[in-house]
Amino acid sequence: LAFGKHVYPKYVHTEGITGITNEDVMYCNDFGGAVKLIGWASRRGNKAAVMVCPAFISGSSQLSSVNDVFNAILVSGDATGDVVFYGKGAGKLPTASAVVSDIIIAAKMNDNSKSLYWEDSQGEFVVDYKDLENKFYVRLICSDKTKALETAEKMWGTLHILHREGELTEEAAFITERIEERRFEQDCLNLSEFAEIKGKIRVLDY
Rank of each mutant, 00 (worst) to 15 (best):
G91Q: 06
I179H: 08
M109R: 15
A106E: 13
A49Y: 09
R183G: 00
L63T: 03
A55M: 07
A172D: 02
V25A: 14
G89E: 00
I197G: 00
S115G: 08
P94N: 08
T151I: 07
H160D: 14
C28D: 00
K47N: 10
E153G: 09
F136P: 05
S101R: 15
E181D: 10
L168I: 09
K10F: 04
F70R: 12
I175P: 06
Y8H: 15
I105F: 10
P54R: 07
V35P: 07
T169Y: 12
M26Y: 06
E171F: 09
D102S: 15
E23T: 09
Y8C: 04
K135G: 01
K47W: 00
K108H: 13
L63W: 04
R164C: 09
G39F: 13
G157D: 08
V126S: 02
H163R: 14
L204H: 01
E181V: 15
E124S: 14
S42G: 03
P9Q: 03
S113T: 11
D205L: 04
G33I: 05
E180P: 01
R202C: 01
Y27D: 06
S115A: 14
A173V: 02
I20W: 03
S61Y: 05
I175E: 07
A48R: 01
E171K: 08
L189T: 12
A34S: 14
F136K: 04
D24Y: 02
R44A: 11
G19D: 13
G59N: 09
D24S: 09
G87P: 06
Q62R: 14
L191P: 04
I20N: 05
L149I: 14
D102C: 12
M155T: 00
E15V: 10
I103M: 13
A195S: 08
G81W: 04
F70S: 10
D128P: 12
N67F: 09
H160S: 12
D131P: 03
W156A: 01
N71D: 12
E180N: 15
E185H: 10
G33D: 00
L149M: 15
F174M: 03
D187W: 03
L74N: 07
C142Q: 08
D30S: 14
I175T: 01
G87K: 09
S121N: 10
S97K: 14
